[in-house]
Design a protein around this nucleic acid. Structure first.
Length: 104
DNA sequence: TATTTGACGATTT
DNA sequence: CAAATCGCCAAAT
């Protein structure tokens, strides 16, 4: 399995109402320092629809300001839809929503 | 074909 | 404690 596929699998493992950081996903893939490739895997996003990119945030808890699915406010909506509180600057409270259960 | 860049983060100095 | 450097690897130039 390619590193990219591992990323996709890990992302899909994120439980409802939770978020994960790039570093967390990288660690789940066996490459803690490969956070960059995690972001890239999502950028490519061959499974775009199937992968909840909105649950992926950086270490600060901020969503990717990039083009994500056509609009940052879409991410905000999706996160709020899952019960996640999103600030105006598209940041979430990692202390509450980070999927610690998955990363351990 | 070679170099640079890129949704990032940890480690070292 | 803050700044600089390294790691990661595929795609774009």
């Amino acid at each position: 399995m390619n590193f990219f596929e591992k990323v996709y699998q890990a992302v899909k493992k994120i439980p409802y109402g939770k978020v994960a950081t790039y570093g967390d996903i990288a660690r789940l893939c066996g490459r803690q320092r490969a956070a960059r490739q995690v972001g890239w895997a999502l950028h490519q996003n061959p499974h775009f629809i199937e992968i909840p990119c909105h649950r992926i945030v950086n270490r600060f808890g901020a969503l990717a300001p990039a083009f994500a699915f056509g609009g940052a406010h879409i991410q905000k909506s999706l996160l709020e839809q899952e019960g996640i509180e999103v600030r105006e600057d598209l940041t979430v409270d990692l202390a509450r929503y980070r999927c610690t259960e998955l990363t351990e």
